[in-house]
Write a protein that binds this DNA or RNA. Structure first.
Lengths: 212, 212
DNA sequence: TAGATTGTTAATCGATTAACAATC
DNA sequence: TAGATTGTTAATCGATTAACAATC
């Protein structure tokens, strides 16, 4: 669904007044029927014979994606990764301003990271309450991840982006996305191993079940 | 598929000689039939009445995941993110040693990043050939991503991990995984927006098509 | 009215899983 | 032999897509 957004931004920039499901489908590499069904699921309707109003579509999808509001972000873990994420300009640009970066290590507290300075994780509750934070990013060592997640949950965070390899166990109300570098690389090497093996004529199957 | 691995490592550590598809399924949160089908797809067979040999399974899955060899990594882009990735210990640990970090900016070339120092992107071909690099990581600004990807493809890289928001167009032989922070956050906010809307009783549908 | 395109039903496809004969 | 568990077929489920009547 987020895929539609950039295509629509382009269309709006080119001042297309309307777009057909067929056109949109080609832009995002999907099937026209799927596009219509997706939009219908968001209660967005078009005009028969004409298509969808681009500006209206853009607005409605932004709302559906929650982009009509800012989502304050707190980053827990001020190591290399945490600091890199805090400096990532793309985030604020796309409606996810980083409001704080925390660590448990007193030696790091007070260090400056871009425009922020590292704060202590003990202040999480107050920070979340005061600064309109609604997303937590976990950039700690894997062993700390569950503890941090519990802490985030306890202060009311309902959206977590987890950069560790730990599979978190949380209330189902809490949405978690995991971004694990090594797993991504393993998936790449898995595909590559399979296709090379297939080319080399060994018995490894090309058609497997999933690839996940 | 990569999911099985850590469960198996644990089992091996506890010296379980055999594991049933049922047991393994519970560990990875899947269905026993799916586990059996997955393993069969990798030409791994078990013993009726007994289950699968844990050590054998671990070995075969490692091979299938390509983990029996190291996959040298080159990082293109020595900004905050590139440097953080280069310092990520987890990578070498899991069989993905970072062999080089490159940038196009002469001011960055020569700077040290952990044990490496930044090299110029013009040397990519030689570096890939000499150091057994098989995975490229793109950590440049989004506008440069396609150019870098073309370059990586041209020097024979077949596995790319793309940290920009650009959708890359490459030969289908080249496996690409995208890790886009803002998109991940958008997905979180999308879910959160939907569920809050549903709780608030507005018309936003809880049952949609995909959520991607 | 003729052409275009939606909204939606029904068909298709693929993936998941239940079930069970084979067999250790 | 009795119990357990695989390997695989057939049933189920869900998601995708073709097709077309409704209608702008």
């Amino acid at each position: 669904m987020p895929t539609y957004l950039s295509a629509l931004v382009d269309l709006a920039a080119e001042e297309y007044p309307h777009v057909s499901s067929d056109h949109l489908a080609r832009l995002v590499g999907a099937n026209p029927a799927t596009v219509r069904r997706d939009l219908a699921a968001l209660d967005i309707s078009g005009t028969r014979g004409l298509g969808y109003d681009v500006k209206y579509l853009l607005h409605e999808i932004s709302v559906a994606l929650g982009l009509s509001q800012d989502w304050g972000v707190v980053i827990v873990g001020a190591g290399n990764l945490g600091r890199a994420l805090a400096n990532h300009e793309g985030l604020t640009q796309r409606g996810f301003p980083v409001r704080a970066i925390l660590d448990i290590d007193p030696a790091l507290v007070g260090q400056s990271v871009g425009e922020l300075s590292v704060e202590h994780v003990d202040d999480l509750g107050a920070i979340v309450a005061d600064r309109g934070v609604s997303v937590g990013v976990i950039a700690t060592p894997a062993q700390e991840a569950q503890r941090v997640a519990d802490l985030l949950e306890s202060v009311g965070i309902r959206s977590i982006l987890n950069f560790t390899s730990t599979a978190l166990v949380l209330d189902e109300q809490v949405q978690v996305r995991r971004v694990d570098l090594a797993t991504e690389l393993q998936i790449l090497s898995f595909y590559q191993t399979r296709t090379s093996a297939a080319r080399a004529g060994t018995g490894l199957p090309l058609e497997g079940s999933d690839g996940s």
